[in-house]
Amino acid sequence: MKLLVLVLNRFFWFFPTVVGLMVITFTISHIIPADPVAFLAGDNASNEQIEALRRQLGLDQPMHIQLWRYLIDLTQGNFGNSLYTLRPISDDLSSRLPATLELTFMSVLVSAALGIPLGVISAVRRNSPLDHFLRIFTVSGLAIASFWFAILLQLLFAMDLGWTPLQGRSSGWGPEHITGFFVIDSLLTWNMEELRLSLSHMILPVMTLAYPAMATIVRFTRAGVLNAMNSNYVLYEEAMGFPRRVIIWKYVLRNALIGTVTQIGLIFGILIANAVVVEAVFDWPGLGYYAVQSILMSDYNAIMGFTFVAGVIFIIVNLIVDISHGFIDPRESR
């Protein structure tokens, strides 16, 4: 019952938040620039062209009507056309979305698979050399600029050692398009060569993205485990002689993970943000790369489209995290 209320409450706030996001992008694109039309038309447009464009875009209308039309357009997925690809921005974004999602999901997977056990071990062996090393390692992960780290990895592994591809998503044609996720598509078509290619192209970008995410997970898991180990239920479980590995990897970890899971939303934010520069460095044909190209082209409709889509993804992820938190923590759910 409580869970249902929670789910409904989160869904209820989903729509106002998305509308709020639209208002923000509207403000940035229509109110901040002194003359958005001149901005849109570019530097070489004549006065007549600008006026024609103004009428065509409805920018001669009062602000509240513009806002209303903007909301309607965005709701229908109409972001305008890209100056860079000359295609509808929504098509561009949707064709690039799988590449970014594949990269981010893989990074979440890797960072959680490494970060959670490392966080537990770090807490269990508190103040051991390993714990100190992990502290330095995680603090560095949060301080390193991901674009710089990406370049270092390229220098070392791709250029110097030649172990990994330098950039791109696949050096072949890519697997037959089914979902747009190369790993899934090559598995579905049982194309092992493409699978190998897509995975090897993913190594460096995923390392770059997963490092700060993993650092965050290690820190939160460590704190959560330490907190749980000081609890009365662990004292009870120890006093009743439960095997230590069962106490730590089942009873303590489950409690600690409740805190870590809520951080996945935060981590996803870091990943999406870093994806912009990481995709740019690795020429990864996803949303981030598209955004950087749009920056270079001063294609601001495309940037607004990217901002909006990135925001909506982030809102959805947080919605899922909030709701799953309700399922994971029994105290929230009944």
Binding site: Y233, M240, F242, I328, R331
Partner: peptide, 25 residues
């Protein structure tokens, strides 16, 4: 001790039954 004594030959009743149960199981 953990295997043969604690929880077998000697068991324990804690002070606070509220916090001595693991809340998420």
């Amino acid at each position: 001790l953990s295997d043969k004594i604690r929880g077998r030959a000697i068991t324990f009743i804690p002070q606070d039954p509220f916090s001595s149960f693991n809340p998420v199981f």
